[in-house]
């Protein structure tokens, strides 16, 4: 119907609002994500970043506006989406090893057993995050950073076309962070990547475009121009965010 105009969009959100009781969590969001985009959604805690990811996956229903993912409703598109939830939601003492955790990403419906192909994908994903040697290890014995890598492998094992990462750097140790972004650079050739973070400095040097979200979308575009919206999104509290290790957000002109 919309022809080529629509088909290049992985996600297209139009005038979407989401509220809990009478409070708007997200208001009048219009956003499109294209093939091979590498987008960071940044904003303060409680700004609706995780909520937006959940709406893209169809886990939450918007109150107004439209959301289409791979030109269909979000629920239908789940098979093409890899998701990294916030690590805090997880039962880390659950009796499961690394391999089986990543295998969960290959889930394909009731009564459908895992095949050899699934095992192959699981091992490839573990190798991508350099955790293949840990495959028989219990997840309870992993460090926060190792666990995070396993969960990224779980998201990748779905062979997604869209990767949604919720605070991916939250528990990764500083020396891992570089490695992590190298990995993202590599995999983004095969899929669109959207990552959510409250840490402005970390993401800015790696991603291609930034969306600033605090209830409403303040700006959206390439890093240099969109960074102007950060101040608005954070209500001019930018100094608060960067006072520890001042980082340059904008490249020199």
């Amino acid at each position: 119907m919309y022809g080529d105009l629509m088909s290049s969009n992985v996600v297209s959100i139009k005038n979407m609002s989401y509220k809990i009781r009478d409070n708007y969590i997200l208001e009048d969001i219009t956003l499109s994500i294209k093939n091979n985009d590498f987008l960071a959604i940044i904003g303060p805690n409680g700004g609706g970043k995780s909520t937006l990811l959940k709406i893209i996956m169809g886990l939450l229903k918007p109150d107004a506006g439209s959301v289409s993912v791979f030109n269909t409703v979000p629920e239908e598109a789940r098979g093409k989406i890899g998701y990294l939830p916030q690590i805090t939601h997880l039962e880390s003492d659950f009796p499961i090893n690394v391999f089986d955790t990543v295998m969960m990403g290959r889930y394909n419906g009731i009564f459908k057993d895992y095949a050899d192909k699934d095992e192959k994908y699981v091992m490839e994903s573990l190798e991508a995050v350099k955790m293949a040697d840990f495959k028989d290890k219990q997840i309870g014995n992993l460090s926060g950073g190792e666990m995070q890598r396993v969960l990224i492998a779980r998201a990748l094992s779905r062979r997604p076309k869209l990767l949604l990462l919720d605070e991916p750097t939250a528990s990764i140790d500083p020396e891992m962070q570089g490695l992590f972004y190298e990995l993202l650079k590599k995999i983004r050739k095969e899929m669109a990547v959207v990552l959510v973070s409250h840490d402005v400095g970390v993401v800015s040097s790696y991603v291609e475009s930034i969306a600033c979200l605090n209830g409403r979308l303040f700006s959206h575009g390439p890093v240099e121009t969109a960074a102007k919206g950060i101040k608005e999104a954070y209500n001019f509290k930018l100094d608060l965010l960067t006072h520890e290790t001042p980082r340059r957000i904008l490249k020199e002109h």
């Binding site: 996956m57 939830p85 939601h89 889930y107 419906g109």
Partner: peptide, 13 residues
């Protein structure tokens, strides 16, 4: 899946 990580389970459909 739902005992381990309910949110991810839902994301799997």
């Amino acid at each position: 899946a739902i005992s381990f990580d309910e949110e991810f389970a839902e994301a799997l459909g």
